[in-house]
Design a protein around this nucleic acid. Structure first.
Lengths: 166, 166
DNA sequence: GCATTTCCTACTACTCTGATAGGGAAGGGT
DNA sequence: ACCCTTCCCTATCAGAGTAGTAGGAAATGC
């Protein structure tokens, strides 16, 4: 008992950022960087960020439907951000391609209800979500691509213990 | 364009707490509550928290292998916490049944590397993870089951805007 | 030896993830 | 008018993970 080499069920994490979300954010950052040089082709983004290009096409399409980017077909078409990079948060991008930021058992925290000794679990999930939002809603594409992370986020990332695995 | 009724791809969230993790925490809380009354049967937990009992059995087993609970078979056997409830964090429980807290595309943040305008994405994920840890590592079973959430967590949960969906 | 309760293995149904393939539709240049 | 480029749409796929269910073997206490 108390087996120190215990490995959980899978090697999969409890809260995971999907490849879609990661790719979407990186694509958006690429668009934020190349701001005043006309539309950027999917192929260019795919090459710059090493994202499978057909997969990326689908993601860019979702972002267009979500109103995050606009597109132009033909000759030298491509994509560009629909709004200034400073007005698009990382959370906006993730929500657009992956839905709500945080859920528990598939439902958003406010829809949950617990009883007995688990009653205070609901406020805990709410606090967790609030903390996730603080980082992802509070950081814009411009912050990441150019001007540097917001002060509070930078502070979190500067703590060396934040970089170590459990 | 900018379709206001846009619904992402699935209705699934970006970062989700699985049913396993939610059940595991609630079961552990139930054990934390019934501390000095001998071992608690899986069936009792399952009834109290409305968790499918065969599913719960598997989860309790994982927690035993992970050294979080001890078990006793036969007559009036059951489960109890292996350590005092104040010394087991919510993160401990989740890691035991679901692996690492946060991952991006299946790998833990420190293993990632980004280039170009996405370079500052790594510290962002690190900050995100730090914030998740702050809540889940900083809250014990006892906090949730009896003594009330830690001050900083309570503060997060008291903000009304934390309770609204985007 | 018998009831109880944990422990183990296997199985199922379904969904999600991370892609790939092929072609159709729009736009621009000449 | 033509053609080339680039986005846009639909379909398909293999593999993995999720949430359970089922049946029985092994331990414990009376």
């Amino acid at each position: 008992m108390g087996d120190p080499t215990h490995n959980p069920v899978g090697d999969n994490a409890a809260m995971r950022i999907s490849a879609r979300a990661d790719y979407a954010v990186r694509a958006a950052l690429q668009l934020a960087a190349c701001t005043d040089s006309g539309p950027v082709k999917a192929e260019a983004i795919s090459a710059a960020q090493e994202i499978p290009h057909k997969f990326l096409e689908g993601i860019l399409n979702d972002m267009r439907r979500g109103g995050l980017v606009t597109s132009q077909r033909g000759g030298n078409g491509g994509y560009r951000l629909a709004r200034p990079a400073a007005e698009i948060s990382i959370a906006d991008v993730i929500r657009t391609v992956d839905g709500p930021l945080v859920s528990v058992r598939g439902v958003r925290p406010p829809e949950l209800s617990y009883s007995g000794p688990a009653e205070s679990l609901l406020p805990l999930w709410i606090a967790l979500r609030a903390n996730v939002r603080q980082v992802l809603d509070g950081t814009s594409l411009e912050d990441v691509a150019c001007s540097g992370l917001p002060a509070d986020v930078k502070k979190l990332a500067e703590n060396p213990s934040a970089w170590t695995n459990p």
